[in-house]
Design a protein around this nucleic acid. Structure first.
Length: 263
DNA sequence: TGACGTCACGTTCTGTACTT
DNA sequence: AAGTACAGAACGTGACGTCA
């Protein structure tokens, strides 16, 4: 694990390091801390059984096994050791306990948006912004003020990388038209935060954007307003379920938002 | 003491490479 | 072309910490 983190850990988020430490810790708990070549299929199977016994879902077990494989394959390669990785090809039900998310109903979003307008503060601007743009929570939280274009014909938000907030993938870089309550929120932010670097200074006090806090705070606030199990993520959609009620047509440099319900 | 933030751990998503 | 594995990233949530 130390070889893996030393070589691959540079510039990676804290969660990357923690995931490697935690997953390998689980292996050590079950099978002991051995030489790479000392682990057997029996160890890997016992490891799987221990994870199932803990009550982890299939997707979590997949994730943990993935990390262990990644660490062991890399360390073996670095050490010039060729071995048949016992953590590969271990069978378990990947779908066990996996839950599917449901999108929020349009009326629920209307209610939430009305509350955002009523309370009219930074957290509510963020929720409103997410609700009519479909951007990820971390993308919104880490916006610079200059990413919001709220004047002229082409009102939009620009999603781009910043030193304080990376993008999930290179393909995440994009522009989204500002419409509905997202436009309202963007204008509130723009005129409130004039002269500041960040659109949401409260969640950008350190060197890195803290979307974790927004997730905790927004979900706590949303809970009484949305169906059981629904969260901020369902405001913009995940797993293929998008509530987005807008599509966009670009003519020249102007983006025209079109409400889907208009047909 | 309550509101809000932080942390650790669990869960799910997504792009890429490889296989069927 | 479709399916699968792998690797990395983002988000949810409960426990706990902090501070007015």
């Amino acid at each position: 694990m130390s070889i893996y983190l030393k070589q691959k850990g540079h510039g990676r988020p804290v969660t990357f390091h923690r995931a490697a430490e935690r997953s390998c810790g689980y292996v050590i708990d079950v099978a002991g801390d051995k030489d790479l070549r000392g682990y057997t299929k029996k160890d890997a199977n016992a490891f799987r059984d221990a994870l199932i016994k803990r009550g982890l879902s299939g997707s979590s077990i997949t994730r943990i096994f993935g990390t262990v494989r990644s660490v062991t394959n890399f360390a073996a390669s670095e050490a010039g050791v060729s071995f048949n990785n016992p953590f590969s090809g271990v069978y378990f039900d990947r779908q066990a306990g996996v839950q599917e998310r449901e999108p929020l109903a349009g009326e629920v979003i209307d209610t939430v948006q009305a509350e955002c307008v009523s309370l009219d503060d930074d957290l509510r601007w963020l929720v409103a912004l997410v609700s009519d743009t479909g951007m990820r929570l971390a993308e919104a939280t880490g916006l610079a003020l200059t990413d919001l274009v709220v004047e002229g014909d082409c009102k939009k938000v620009i999603i781009r990388e910043h030193p304080w907030r990376r993008l999930k993938t290179a393909g995440s870089s994009r522009e989204i038209p500002l419409v509905g309550k997202a436009l309202w929120a963007a204008q509130r932010i723009y005129f409130h935060a004039a002269g500041q670097v960040h659109a949401f200074p409260r969640y950008n006090r350190g060197q890195l954007t803290n979307a974790n806090s927004v997730s905790a705070a927004s979900n706590k606030w949303l809970k009484p307003m949305v169906p059981t199990g629904c969260t901020i993520v369902d405001m913009y959609g995940i797993s293929g379920h998008f509530h987005m009620r807008w599509i966009a047509a670009t003519i020249g440099s102007v983006v025209y938002p079109i409400r889907k319900s208009m047909g």
